[in-house]
Structures are given as structure tokens and as C-alpha cells.
Design a protein around this nucleic acid. Structure first.
Length: 677
DNA sequence: GACTCGAGTCCCGCC
DNA sequence: GACTCGAGTC
């Protein structure tokens, strides 16, 4: 029997069990609820029950996937033999690729490279094309490549797209980068989508096999699909046409990675028989919060006009101006502590939302001092740590010695007598022979200009890696990792590098935590391999950490970026750093076009996370690059409170063209500077 | 070959 | 402020 605690629109969406369905759902209108109820409904449908594992639900973040999984489990009550497949796009692609990637000329045990690895590949690609230093930095190259990949532009097509000198250089490097990746048997994050798309497009057998695994597909946050994701979904759902997508064009915040709102706006054309359901009653926030939200988002030109209707009243949102970012953190944390103590709130009732990953630091310090439990979502800081990256690089080399980036990382860490000059010589030779550097190592002794000592050191390293590589198949991964750490005396290296014993202990603890994660992975995986662990780490951080988070989530103050907060809700929300340059971010301000509109949607996502109470704070001065600098209040504060004129409601001649052109990319000066699209 | 020091640069967001 | 890179020294 269908659930009765739904409003008519929600009920309609939940009980439409076949054919294409578009759910246009504003913030707080029960979107997640509709999706999970619908999954349960499909499984429990009396007339035509669907086997749980024939349902695929796709989300954008791990957090969203976990949450959906949890809610669906609660709803379905008893333990199911098969579970619906609920995963992120990227995990879905990894599974598809594992089955078929050899058809694209990659090894089945491909590795996934993260941001750090990418930089290594980018660096060597730039070296290969002999780009003059400083012309194009590795980071810049990666963002060019990522932008091309997100638009499904392949290396051979990039040159035609390039306009500036930098872009031409980047297109040449893109080809090398992609070759190097392929040689190393590695995919970057964008490749996961791109290769999956290619597989489905070029081989109808593969497409049929993959599409045939499911009878129903649901896609959350459909407004955030990029071209590849859009085509993958089309390819998988084209046969049965049981596709349900939910989304809100006002919450599209991933334009920078190729997301196109057009996909959700075009749904009815793609699937002409599609049913459209609109959810507009907001059950989450007070009328006061929604008044601010509605007023803010109305400043965006390109959108489907809609107004969220509230179902309850509450207090007015507040704006707090505070001296500097340290005081800001102190004030917010003190207030939270006070409300927990005096008003019996729970830590989990609170969220502190920031624009960038660096902002939470000050709040972390304060929260620790106040002894409030908190959870920092995202940031990936653990896997960014030098010692963790080192150990991971060792494990990667052992799993796959041709992993060039990792090999270069550990080749002289700890120092073993292989100098930069030696590395350069080996690299040149590798480029000359067109082979991975690993395959050049045996010839080190014969290379001109390589000192005998260096050649011997290279030989010793090669033998060690080979030995561990051979053992990798036979020995449990944890034992292997421990033996490896002993062999290279990594603990001694930490002692050598960090004179302070607290630092040493903290860094070694991180190494141990990584080994624990490996142990945990081995316990819950039937055929645990080093490669499997590394793949899991690359795609999701590890489950161990997700577990910890889930536990903490039950009662901890949430500290996260606005991007990470999408899809979540909290009783009381603090949006901090409401300043020009932070929100909207200075990069978006200086970028032409609709970049600021996306910042506005980001702000909208933030304010609509709040259920009962919303506080916006700004610091009047903020440390930047080592110096305190005065700030300017965010334009969004004026828009939220009705202190700014909305150009969408005024005649066009009120605009002052040319003013921005003169100020160029500098931050706006005037306090009352009006927002323009 | 390894280490130190000073100059120069600087990452937005996520999987 | 934190980090990387290159020059200079041991």
C-alpha cells in the first residue's frame, strides 16, 4: 500500500512506477523522501514487484549515496537478500569499466589517479613537449584538460578548440598526458566518465549488457549532470525507459565541472512521453528563511521562475559583522556552545557552512577548544598528507611498478643515493625509448653519465620492488604493507625529517591509520588485493572513514563547504565568510559571464539548508597571504535583505554598462555595489 | 648527493 | 602563511 504521509504531488511521483519521470523539486520539498519512497514502492509493488538489485540509483556525492542507502534500508525494514544499487556516477563507472575496459586497450586492473598523481603526469607531459618553464603550470594544464574532458573533447580534437597560446600548448600536452596515462594503465576522474561513455557508444553488446542489468534507473540532482553523465544515463535507460530524474535548476552548482542545466530543461524533449511532477511546498524552512532565499535567487536571470511556499513561521535570519576571522570563529562556536548548554540543542542540530576548504581551520580550532564534537566533511585532508601519499605511492608501485608518478615520488624517499640528476637522466632515456621509466631501470648501469653509485642504488630499488611485487599475489596486503614499511625504514625517515617528537608521532599515526584502513578493507572484502584497496581509496576515500562519519553525524556539529552541504539539512545554520571574494569567490567575480549566478545558487543552496534558524556572518578583516586585509560585505547580503535593486524587475536602462570593464579583475570597491548578471 | 635558505607563487568547489 | 623551487654550501 502506498504511503499516506505524502502530499498529492509527492504521492504522484512516488506512485508513478514506470516510464520516464521528471521531478522538478525545489529545495526542501521532500526530494530525497520521494526518491527513497519510490525505490521502496517499486520493490513492494503488489502487481509487479521489482527485484531490488534491478534498481539503480545514482547520486553525485558519496555522502548522498550513503544517506539514500540508509534511508532506503530503514524504509524497507527487513533485511533484503539483494540490495538496490545506490552509488555515485564515478563508482558506477568503475564497475562498468572493470568489466570491459580491456576493449579500450587498458589493463583490467587499471588504476585511478588523484589530483596529486595528475600533477605528476601533467609535469612530465610538459617536460616532453619541452614547454618553457612558467609558460604553463601543471595545475593550469590539468584544468584545461579537465575542461576539455568534461565537454567530451578528446586529445586529437583539442587543438581545433584551442584559441590562445596557452590553449595550444595545453592541447599538445593533453595528447602526451593521455598517452602517459594509458601507458601507466591509469585513468583520471574525468576518464572514468569519458571511457564509460565511449564503451557504451562504440559497442552495442557492452551497452546491452550494462543496460540489461537494471529495470529502473533513478538519478538525483539531475541538474548537475555533465555531457558524459547525460549520455551514459541515456545509454543505460534507453531500452526500458524507466528513468526517474529529480533536480532543481536553482541548485545547479557544478557548472565548473561541465554540468549543464540544459539537460534537465530538455528532459521532456529527450523523453517525450515523460511525466513531469513539480514539488513546491517546502517543509524544511521557516517562512522568514524562505523569504530571504526567494528574494536572493530571483536575482538570477536564467531560471524557471518558482516560489517556494513555507509551512511554518520562525525568527528572522541574522547577519553578524565581526572583527576578523578568528573572532568570527570564536563568536560562532561560543554561540553554538551556549545554545547546546542552555537550550538543550544537540551538536548535530548545527552546521557551519563555508565557501572554501581552507575556511574551516579556524572553526576546527575553536570547536576543539570548546570540546564540542564536530565532523569535517570533505577536504580529503587525510589523503593529502605527505606521509600518507608517500606510503600510498609505495603500495602503488608494488601493485604496479609501471606507475610512473608513484615511482618518481618514492624513487629517492627516503634518500637512497638517487639524485635529481640521475632521475632526470632516467627520465630522458624513458622518453627517448618511449617506455615507462620502470622499464629503463634495468639498463641504468649502461647509461652514459650515470655514476656507478647511482646505478647501484637504482638496482637495489628495482630488486626490492620486484620482490614485493612478486609477493603481492601471495601475501595478505596488510602483512605486505608492514614488511614494506620496515624494509624502507619509513619510521626512521619521519624521525629524520621532523625533529619535534609530537610531529613524528602524529605523522606515524597517520601511516598506521592507513594500514588500519587496509586491514579493514581486507576484512570486509572476500578477495582482498592491494590493487583493489588502492582503487577504493582513490574513488571514495575509504569506507572506514565513511563509517566513522556516519557515527559522528549522529551527534556532531557539521563543518563543511557549501558544495558538500547540498542535499542536507540542519536545524540551525551558520554561513560564514559572507564577503566579496569568498562568496562570490573572486575567481567568479573576475570571470566573465554567468559565473556569479552560480555563486548565487551556491549561496541559495546554503541558506535553504536551514530549518529553523539562519545566521550569516562576515569578518571585517581577513588574513590573506600572510597579511590582514579589509573585506567588503558580500553583495548577496544586500540581495537577501532587499537592500539591492533587482535588475530583473527594473527597466534595462538602469544598468551602467562599462563600469566593470574599467575596474577589470579587481575586487569591487563600493559597498553598495549592485549585483549584475 | 643531501641539506639550508630565501625568493616567488599561490588551490574554489567534487568524484 | 605555507609551500615549492633553485642556488649555494657542506
Amino acid at each position: 500500500m502506498p504511503p499516506t504521509d505524502l502530499n498529492p504531488a509527492q504521492y504522484d511521483a512516488v506512485t508513478t512506477l514506470s516510464g520516464p519521470l521528471l521531478v522538478l523539486a525545489g529545495a526542501g520539498t521532500g526530494k530525497t523522501r520521494v526518491v527513497t519512497y519510490r525505490i521502496a514502492e517499486l520493490i513492494r509493488d503488489r502487481s509487479r514487484p521489482v527485484r531490488p538489485d534491478r534498481i539503480l540509483a545514482v547520486t553525485f556525492t558519496n555522502k548522498a549515496a550513503n544517506e539514500m542507502l540508509e534511508r532506503a534500508a530503514v524504509l524497507l525494514g527487513k533485511r533484503l537478500k539483494q540490495k538496490p544499487e545506490i552509488s555515485t556516477f564515478h563508482s558506477l563507472c568503475v564497475r562498468i569499466l572493470r568489466r570491459h575496459i580491456n576493449q579500450l586497450g587498458y589493463p583490467v586492473a587499471f588504476s585511478i589517479c588523484d589530483r596529486g598523481d595528475q600533477e605528476g603526469f601533467a609535469r612530465s607531459a610538459l617536460r616532453e613537449i619541452k614547454a618553457a618553464d612558467g609558460l604553463l603550470r601543471p595545475g593550469e594544464l590539468i584544468s584545461f584538460i579537465s575542461r576539455w574532458k568534461n565537454a567530451s573533447i578528446r586529445p586529437e580534437q583539442a587543438a581545433a578548440e584551442a584559441e590562445t597560446d596557452k590553449e595550444h600548448l595545453a592541447s599538445a600536452a593533453y595528447r602526451r598526458y593521455q598517452n602517459a596515462l594509458k601507458t601507466a594503465g591509469a585513468l583520471d576522474f574525468d576518464d572514468l566518465l569519458l571511457c564509460t561513455e565511449e564503451l557504451l557508444a562504440r559497442d552495442s553488446k557492452v551497452r546491452q549488457a550494462e543496460a540489461g542489468r537494471f529495470d529502473h534507473i533513478l538519478v538525483d540532482e539531475y541538474q548537475d549532470t555533465n555531457g558524459s553523465q547525460y549520455r551514459i544515463v541515456k545509454g543505460l535507460a534507453g531500452g526500458h525507459r524507466n528513468l526517474c530524474v529529480v533536480g532543481d535548476d536553482d541548485q545547479s552548482i557544478y557548472g565548473w565541472r561541465g554540468a549543464e542545466v540544459a539537460h534537465i530543461l530538455r528532459f521532456k524533449q529527450d523523453w517525450p512521453e515523460a511525466k513531469v511532477v513539480r514539488l513546491e511546498v517546502n517543509y524544511r524552512s521557516t517562512r522568514q528563511i524562505l523569504d530571504w532565499s526567494n528574494r536572493l535567487i530571483a536575482f538570477n536571470k536564467l531560471r524557471h521562475p518558482k516560489v517556494l511556499r513555507a509551512t511554518c513561521e520562525g525568527e528572522m535570519p541574522r547577519i553578524l559583522q565581526i572583527e576578523d576571522e578568528v573572532q568570527e570563529a570564536k563568536a560562532v562556536v561560543a554561540e553554538i556552545a551556549g545554545r547546546i548548554q542552555h537550550l538543550k540543542r544537540r551538536p548535530r542540530d548545527f552546521a557551519i557552512l563555508c565557501r572554501t576548504n581552507e575556511q574551516p581551520r579556524a572553526f576546527e580550532t575553536e570547536l576543539r577548544q570548546a570540546k564540542l564534537p564536530y565532523v569535517l566533511v570533505g577536504g580529503m585532508s587525510f589523503y593529502d598528507r605527505k606521509e600518507v601519499r608517500d606510503v600510498l605511492a609505495y603500495l602503488k608501485v608494488v601493485a604496479q611498478p609501471t606507475d610512473e608518478v608513484s615511482l618518481l615520488r618514492i624513487i629517492n624517499t627516503p634518500p637512497r643515493g638517487i639524485s635529481q640528476a640521475t632521475v632526470k637522466r632516467l627520465l630522458d632515456e624513458a622518453i627517448h625509448r618511449g617506455k615507462p621509466i620502470w622499464e629503463v631501470l634495468p639498463a641504468a648501469g649502461e647509461l652514459d653519465g650515470l655514476p656507478a653509485g647511482a646505478a647501484q642504488a637504482v638496482g637495489r630499488l628495482r630488486q626490492m620492488v620486484e620482490r614485493f611485487h612478486r609477493q603481492a599475489g601471495r601475501q595478505p596486503p596488510v602483512e605486505l604493507a608492514q614488511a614494506l614499511l620496515r624494509e624502507v625504514a619509513y619510521k626512521n625517515e619521519l624521525t629524520r625529517l621532523y625533529p619535534n617528537s609530537d610531529d613524528q608521532a602524529a605523522r606515524w599515526a597517520a601511516v598506521e591509520e592507513l594500514v588500519n584502513a587496509l586491514a579493514d578493507y581486507s576484512r570486509r572484502t572476500s578477495e582482498a588485493t592491494l590493487a583493489g584497496f588502492l582503487q577504493e581509496v582513490a574513488i571514495s576515500g575509504n569506507e572506514n572513514e565513511a563509517d566513522k562519519q556516519a557515527k559522528l553525524d549522529r551527534d556532531a556539529v557539521a563543518l563543511m563547504t557549501l558544495h558538500a552541504a547540498k542535499g542536507l539539512e540542519f536545524r540551525e545554520v551558520y554561513m560564514v565568510g559572507m564577503e566579496e571574494g569568498a562568496l562570490p569567490h573572486h575567481r567568479s567575480i573576475s570571470a566573465a559571464g554567468a559565473a556569479v549566478d552560480e555563486e548565487r545558487r551556491l549561496c541559495y543552496v546554503g541558506v535553504t539548508r536551514a530549518q529553523r534558524r539562519l545566521t550569516l556572518t562576515l569578518a571585517l578583516s581577513r588574513m590573506k597571504w600572510g597579511k590582514p586585509r579589509p573585506t567588503i560585505p558580500s553583495r548577496f547580503l544586500y540581495e537577501l535583505t532587499g537592500k539591492a535593486d533587482n535588475p530583473n524587475y527594473l527597466s534595462a536602462k538602469r544598468g551602467v554598462p562599462g563600469r566593470e570593464a574599467r575596474t577589470g579583475s579587481r575586487e569591487p570597491r563600493g559597498k553598495n555595489r549592485r549585483a549584475r548578471g
